[in-house]
């Protein structure tokens, strides 16, 4: 095109920024929905909404802004849809969680032997509201304040959800380590 308009430049900028964060968005969508079709729909819809609102983006942190759009969309739409299936409603206060009984400390050998799929499966087994906080914190590197803003919840709730999510993961990984003989059961 010989002449580029303001909208052309806006679209170019959006595409550039979107491509850079796309793997993170796709990974987050897959981990939230646990379904590749739902994840694809979620990412597409988030892209469309973000492009629509791109003129209002403050230019500070595109990844955090995109993740906020994606998680909000997931919470408002996809989670609701998934809940209409057989998934029980999750209550943060009454959630059962594995209680670690081991005082043994994990070592790097366990980490080296863990496969990506095994960790993904352990993460997928974490109840959704805790999983979302852990994904945003430990995979996407968002701060507590950013997560609170993305999920529109108080920072105190973010702290609690991350701790509970990690406690669940600890339980799964402990079982894995015991099964493989890396740890002894008390």
């Amino acid at each position: 095109m010989l002449f580029r308009t303001g909208r052309d430049r806006l679209r170019d900028r959006f595409e550039r920024e979107f491509k850079a964060v796309f793997p993170s968005l796709n990974g987050t969508a897959l981990r939230l929905t646990r379904d590749s079709d739902d994840a694809a729909d979620l990412v597409q819809e988030a892209a469309v909404r973000a492009f629509d609102a791109f003129e209002r983006f403050d230019g500070q942190n595109f990844k955090a802004w995109m993740l906020r759009i994606l998680t909000n969309l997931y919470i408002n739409k996809y989670r609701q849809r998934q809940r209409t299936g057989n998934q029980p409603s999750l209550d943060e206060e009454t959630m059962d969680e594995p209680v670690a009984a081991l005082t043994e400390i994990p070592d790097q050998q366990i980490l080296a032997n863990l496969l990506e799929d095994e960790v993904e499966a352990a993460l997928a087994a974490v109840p959704e509201i805790f999983r979302t906080a852990v994904v945003l914190s430990d995979i996407e590197g968002a701060s507590y304040d950013e997560i609170a803003e993305m999920l529109e919840i108080p920072v105190g709730t973010v702290r609690s959800r991350i701790a509970r999510g990690r406690a669940h993961l600890r339980g799964s990984l402990e079982r894995f380590a015991i099964e493989r003989g890396y740890l002894r059961q008390d």
Binding site: F22, G27, L30, E116, E120, R166, R170
Partner: peptide, 23 residues
């Protein structure tokens, strides 16, 4: 002490094994 190491371990495992997904 064990909880401290386990929480560090969990964070490390998740951040290193769960990678972004190209598509």
């Amino acid at each position: 002490e064990a909880t401290y190491h386990w929480m560090l371990f969990v964070k490390q495992v998740v951040s290193t094994k769960c990678t972004p997904k190209e598509n």
